[in-house]
């Protein structure tokens, strides 16, 4: 898959994760977070990190299929396990149906934060 293809895959996975009830957002990975923090410092306007920054997609070492990692921030009020299961299944289904040819897809969901009511926005 081309680089553009991977970006599209990340977008599909991000969209699927964000539609799950109880998901408040995706946790950008370190490089994105540092870039955002630096941008905020230089420029007072709020900096938006794209949701795909919370997804990582890797080819399996032997080239047979994909491994997707989703880092998500949950909203308070539901059991983390239930939301994580739901994210796992939704992302896996969405990625499989996005691939042009059938390939195995494994998904890891990591809950990085549970946002309290006051900072869920």
């Amino acid at each position: 898959m081309t680089a553009t293809g991977t970006t599209a895959l990340l977008g599909v996975a991000a969209d699927a994760a964000l539609t799950v009830p109880g998901v408040a957002g995706l946790q950008p990975r370190l490089a994105h977070r540092l870039a955002a923090a630096a941008a905020t410092r230089a420029d007072p306007m709020p900096h938006r990190t794209p949701p795909e920054a919370g997804i990582r997609a890797d080819r399996a070492p032997d080239g047979s299929g994909w491994h997707i990692e989703v880092r998500c921030v949950l909203a308070e009020g539901r059991r983390a396990l239930d939301i994580a299961r739901n994210v796992h299944d939704q992302v896996r289904t969405a990625v499989i149906s996005h691939l042009p040819v059938p390939e195995p897809v494994t998904v890891t969901v990591t809950v990085t934060r549970i946002a309290a009511r006051y900072d869920a926005a």
Partner: peptide
């Protein structure tokens, strides 16, 4: 690890 034997689900210790 979150308590699911079939899926790979994790939660950060700090959270």
């Amino acid at each position: 690890p979150l308590a699911d034997s079939d899926r790979d689900l994790r939660i950060a210790e700090s959270t």
